[in-house]
Amino acid sequence: RELEAFAERFKQRRIKLGVTQADVGSALANLKIPGVGSLSQSTICRFESLTLSHNNMIALKPILQAWLEEAEGAQREKMNKP
């Protein structure tokens, strides 16, 4: 249940930020998480549509959570600048 809720929230917030699935995939490489490079657009799509295996969903959740927090933080900074 929690994974499904996160996937839905992730998709809504990604769209609100105006970021494509492909952008998310390539931006993950910038997070410098050990062992994590970029991901394909189709992987992000399959995460959002819950068609990845349960284990893959569990593995990707903290990575996508980290990206989302960073992206939303950058958005807030941009909006707070005069």
Rank of each mutant, 00 (worst) to 15 (best):
Q65C: 06
H54G: 09
K81E: 15
Q75S: 13
N80V: 15
E77I: 08
A71W: 05
N80L: 10
E2G: 07
S40E: 08
I58A: 14
S26F: 11
Q12D: 10
S49K: 09
R76V: 11
A29K: 13
I63R: 06
K78T: 04
A29E: 14
Q75G: 09
G73V: 15
Q21I: 13
N30L: 08
I63S: 05
E8K: 06
S38C: 05
E8A: 11
G73T: 15
R1K: 15
Q75W: 08
Q21K: 15
W67K: 02
N55D: 07
A22E: 14
E4H: 15
L50W: 04
L39E: 04
R46Y: 04
I15L: 11
P82M: 12
S49Y: 03
R13E: 08
R1N: 13
E48P: 00
Q41A: 14
S40Y: 04
S53A: 10
L60N: 05
L50Y: 12
P34D: 11
M79Y: 11
R14C: 01
V19G: 02
L52R: 00
L3G: 02
E2N: 13
Q21W: 06
A27D: 09
F47Y: 04
G18D: 03
E70C: 07
A71Q: 09
R13T: 12
M79S: 10
Q41T: 09
N55Y: 07
I63M: 06
R13F: 05
V24E: 01
E8H: 06
K81L: 14
A7F: 01
R1A: 06
I58K: 15
G35I: 15
F6K: 00
S53N: 07
L39Y: 04
N30W: 06
W67R: 01
S40L: 04
L17V: 04
K78R: 14
C45T: 15
R14G: 00
N56A: 14
N30G: 11
S42T: 13
F6W: 06
V19R: 11
P62H: 01
I63C: 10
M79D: 11
V19I: 11
A22C: 07
L28K: 02
E4V: 11
E72R: 03
L31T: 14
K32W: 05
A74K: 11
L39A: 10
G73L: 14
S26K: 10
E77Y: 11
Q41M: 08
T20A: 09
L60I: 04
A71G: 03
N30H: 14
R14N: 00
N80H: 13
Q21P: 09
M79W: 11
Q75F: 09
L28H: 03
S49A: 12
G18V: 05
S40D: 14
L68T: 02
R1T: 11
A59E: 10
N56H: 12
S40T: 13
I44K: 00
R1Y: 08
T51C: 07
L31M: 12
T51L: 11
N55A: 13
A27S: 11
H54K: 12
K11P: 01
L3M: 10
E2L: 03
I44D: 00
V36T: 15
R13D: 04
R14V: 00
T51D: 14
I15M: 12
E69H: 08
V36D: 02
P82S: 11
I33T: 06
Q75K: 12
Q12W: 03
E69W: 05
K81Y: 05
I44M: 02
Q41I: 15
Q75Y: 08
M57D: 00
K11F: 01
L39R: 02
M57N: 05
A5P: 02
Q75P: 08
L64M: 03
E48G: 00
L39M: 13
A66V: 07
I58V: 10
N55T: 14
E72G: 04
A22L: 06
C45I: 12
